[in-house]
Design a protein around this nucleic acid. Sequence first.
RNA 1: CGGAACGUGGUGUAACGGUAACAUACACGAUUCGGGUUCGUGUGACUCCGGGUUCGAAUCCCGGCGUUCCGACCA
Length: 411
Amino acid sequence: MRQTGLFTKTAKNVPKDEVAKNAILLIRAGYIDKVMAGVYSLLPLGLLTIERINAVIREEMQRIGGVELLLTSLQNPDVWKKTSRWEGDVWFKSVINSGGETGFGWTQEEEIAALMRSHIQSYKDLPRSLFQIQTKFRNEERAKSGIMRGREFLMKDLYSFHSSENDLSHFYEECAIGYERIFARVGLGISTYRTVASGGAFAKYSHEFQTLCEAGEDIIYVHEGKKIAVNKEVCTNEVLADLGIARTELTEHKAIEVGNIFKLGARFSEPLGLLFTDEKGERKPVLMGSYGIGPGRVMGAIVETHADERGLLWPEEVSPFHYHLILIGSKRTEVRARADALYAALKARGKRVFYDDREDVQAGEKFADAELLGFPEAIIVSEKTLQEDRYEVKERRGGGSRSFREQELIG
RNA sequence: CGGAACGUGGUGUAACGGUAACAUACACGAUUCGGGUUCGUGUGACUCCGGGUUCGAAUCCCGGCGUUCCGACCA
């Protein structure tokens, strides 16, 4: 992508109505735009970043057998009334002009359980796991923390269906491992802990994936040795005994909940009549699990934990581009021609390149912009590099630079 | 939902109840051309909305809407 083809601009001034680091940097760099409290648009660079995160999530969900679909946002109240979840303040609800009402989905257990009634009849139809990446709506009392707690946000929600508790538990663990792979790949591995949280009616515990961060809203107690944590909300002596850890071994941290996994049992399948026939001919409720990750929160958590005083700093796997090709001395036609050629050559080889081809912009401003945008490596093309017949490649993290011949770069 | 602060050009700030100013961004002209260069000129605001007080309101009062922060809430 050429920078002259991008409409967004970087800003020096920080928006005054934002305090969260993630929102300030993402807005300054032109990745997102704030529409209302807790409602942000994804601009081109923001969208590319989210798509990178989604691609990782997709791959790992498919690896554990998940099949992707896309459910509707508008919800049928009837199914929600059966599970007594139509009431409550989370909903954004609306009326249908021709009669009746609807609500915007904030999670989807009811809808998917209702759907699966037509597709699961026998134990032979199990297990199944389905996921989607979809916009969710929650009427939060108070939106905060920039993109990390919005009223409209993207969510990956996977639902699994099982014939036995054993099978559910097995998949639950598989999914937990998948989640660990995801967070490792997007650059949150070392700071993300599988955290014990309240389980609900069916299971004693659920698990949250919590990324240590001062901007987080949750408080967790971390056991470094075992690489596990306990949410403050459930950190009782009984829980600690279950986990075989002592309170003195724990350290308190603030954290961002970037994902959660939940055993639902028959909580939704039973009231909605999602039943199957087992080997003995008996009718039983399907056992379910649900597993969420917020790609926007992940993006926010990456910004919070990776960005520095110069701007954003993306791990390679989620960065919208790998190279930020910077043309210096844009008036000199031979320099521009070489930069154009290098851009084309890199693209032809499938490299993800963002090309700062702007004219009349000073080198300093280009460097500052590149650091704000945060791609892993900058390639600098200038009179100086051409004289040496080499290109300078500068790392965003650390700022070290090396020079390469064209062959080494595109080979 | 309780408490607090705030709402002024695109963005960020200023202005005692008395001509709305500055920075940035933008446009034009020079200058510079590997770290946000320098200078000049110019465009751009019914001061969130609606009432009220006053000779006169960005400023004071009331109501609404919105934003942020603290708390409560967050299957």
